[in-house]
Nucleic acid binder design. Structure first.
Lengths: 111, 111
DNA sequence: TCGATACTTAAGCACTCACTTCACTATTGC
DNA sequence: GCAATAGTGAAGTGAGTGCTTAAGTATCGA
């Protein structure tokens, strides 16, 4: 369920925005309320809530409301899924380069 | 030069589109020409070229033109930069959870 | 040299995104 | 109860995205 293209879409799209990355960065240092997330950002609270909704829809962030304050935290599994997608492609490419190197080395030995 | 926010922006934005991720996926298995990249995609060649320009601007893909064919390959360093950003945030969060766990365990020992 | 191939560029169009403001609904503390 | 706090929801706007078609240019192969 974490590896379907639609979810990856949402995650990378969520990470594409600098304000949202800043929010993730803040949350990586511990949970925060909506206002705390908004504080360093030069935009309305409303805009922050909209960003937060994007992050939540992507699965990168989980929130819980207690009384009037909504507390947000990172969902590390989702981060891991995005990381994994990139890692697999990079490794595939690097393994390919290695095999190519081996092939060229062998070809040289035989000449 | 690889870690500035603007470059990360371009990379995550590039990866946010399914067609572009499919292109990266294809390229992770080896270099390809523009037409080869376009072949499995249900869109005009022109659209593919535009996607390719986005990928190239992001630094994720490097292209080289020989005669009339443009050959594309993955730039693994850029992939690594995106991977690294995610990894650092995830690890920060997980280390935090670990410390919290230790604290709770200690508190329990002392009770 | 001439037609086919492999892009390239530009213009245009529908749709989405990142905001804004304004009005509104819980909670909380005094 | 009432003001302050914390967040929510809707409507609007301007800029950006993802395509399309159409009209190029450059190169290759016979």
């Amino acid at each position: 369920m974490l590896h379907d293209p639609a979810q990856l879409d949402l995650m990378f799209q969520a990470l594409a925005d600098p304000a949202r990355r800043q929010m993730v960065d803040r949350l990586s240092r511990g949970p925060a309320s909506v206002s705390q997330l908004a504080e360093p950002l030069a935009m309305s609270l409303s805009a922050v809530v909209q960003h937060l909704n994007v992050l939540e829809a992507s699965g990168l962030v989980r929130t819980e409301k207690l009384g009037r304050v909504r507390t947000c935290q990172i969902e590390p599994q989702a981060l891991r899924a995005a990381e994994h997608w990139i890692n697999e492609r990079r490794l595939a490419w690097e393994r390919r380069l290695d095999r190519l190197g081996d092939f060229l080395a062998e070809a040289k030995d035989e000449s």
